[in-house]
Simulated assay, not measured.
Amino acid sequence: MRVLAAMSGGVDSAVAAARALDAGHDVVGVHLALSRAGGTLRAGSRGCCTIEDAMDARRAADRLGIPFYVWDFSERFRDDVIEDFVAEYSAGRTPNPCMRCNERIKFAAVLEKALDLGFDAVCTGHYAILRDGPSGEPELHRASDAAKDQSYVLGVLTGEQLAHTLFPLGETPSKALVRAEAQARGLTVAHKPDSHDICFIPDGDTRGWLADRVGAERGEIVDRSGAVVGSHEGAHAFTVGQRRGLAIGVPAPDGRPRFVLEVRPVSNTVVVGPKEALATAAISGQKHTWAGAAPVSSEFPCHVQIRAHADPVPARAIVGAGTVTVTPDSPLDGVAPGQTAVLYEGTRVLGQFTIDRTVSAVPAGV
């Protein structure tokens, strides 16, 4: 097959490209330029997609002896990921930019361009496994290494996209083996730190970054009864489940700490309450996709995962009238609208939806 290897400049994508080459594929490397700030440099393990990463990707491609190109997706990334991130926070929601990037850039825009250019598949360094389903349709499964499993952030992929994707690292038992392989292959990225934090906010100051873009407007912090207990400098700086940075002037009657329960951007109000009130009895959303074949029944048991590193929780899902509703066997903790719920059947990813509505397990008067 003709395979386009998406090379981020890290060790995982470099080894994935090497393995695709070993498998006999005709491989071409491509690095995605997602920012037009040409002088941007990586700071240790913070950030990605920098000029340093592009140079590392080129060196890896040269070592493997494959053609290498840089594709400018900065405008698409700005519109589909960064602007979406700002809009979601402004609406009081908690977005996951990695999900949006996978959905709209790496496995939509890039794959579409690759297929138009005559490639058969896109290869990435994600830790996930593809298997054939009962009827030959592709299925997405968790990686062998649970600590590195990235199936959650890939839950936005459709069956059509999975049919043109390769994940050569999915069966690898540990990241240490990938680094050792890179060292043996003479790849200079063998010991490069993994990137973390939001790539377009490399200093990790999400609150400050958002304030620069949406402004700061003073508002009220209220408890569940509506009583004012404090003030804030901008509702966009808060997310459900947050405890630090509230600066509440009125202590709770029981003296226990309070957490953000809800963000109301229209009134610029933040609602706080006890930790118990974060327990969520049900979630639902209208924007959903299936990773391969859709469930045969409109109601089915599953496991639901609401964060990349959260534990999956047994649940029951109901699909109807364009909405997916999930009721977990035990309450979920600190769920916020805008988060992504990924549904599993064993190790298989069934699909995902963006959470629009949550139902608290604790009545407001309690």
Rank of each mutant, 00 (worst) to 15 (best):
A57S: 12
R59S: 05
R59E: 15
R59P: 00
A60R: 03
A60P: 00
A60C: 13
A61Y: 02
D62T: 15
R63Y: 03
L64E: 03
L64K: 03
L64R: 05
L64W: 02
L64D: 03
P67Y: 09
P67R: 12
F68E: 03
Y69Q: 09
V70L: 04
D72S: 06
D72V: 06
F73E: 01
F73Q: 03
F73W: 11
S74C: 08
S74N: 10
S74H: 07
E75C: 11
R76G: 07
F77I: 01
R78F: 10
D79V: 10
D79M: 06
D79E: 14
D79F: 00
V81E: 01
V81G: 11
I82F: 01
E83S: 14
E83P: 00
V86T: 06
V86Y: 05
V86A: 13
V86P: 00
Y89H: 15
Y89K: 12
S90I: 00
A91D: 13
G92H: 09
T94L: 13
N96G: 05
N96C: 07
C98R: 01
M99A: 09
M99D: 02
R100Q: 06
C101T: 05
C101V: 10
N102V: 11
N102K: 12
N102A: 05
E103R: 15
E103V: 04
R104E: 13
R104Y: 08
I105V: 13
I105W: 05
K106S: 04
K106C: 10
F107G: 01
F107C: 04
F107V: 04
L111S: 04
L111E: 02
L111C: 07
E112A: 14
K113N: 02
A114P: 02
A114W: 02
L115P: 02
L115W: 07
D116G: 09
D116P: 00
L117K: 08
G118T: 09
G118I: 10
G118N: 05
F119V: 06
F119A: 01
F119D: 01
D120Y: 02
D120E: 09
A121G: 07
A121I: 07
C123R: 02
C123A: 09
T124Y: 06
T124H: 05
T124K: 05
G125D: 07
G125N: 08
H126Q: 14
H126I: 10
I129G: 02
I129F: 00
D132R: 15
D132V: 00
G133P: 01
G133R: 14
P134L: 15
P134M: 14
P134D: 11
S135A: 15
S135H: 14
G136A: 05
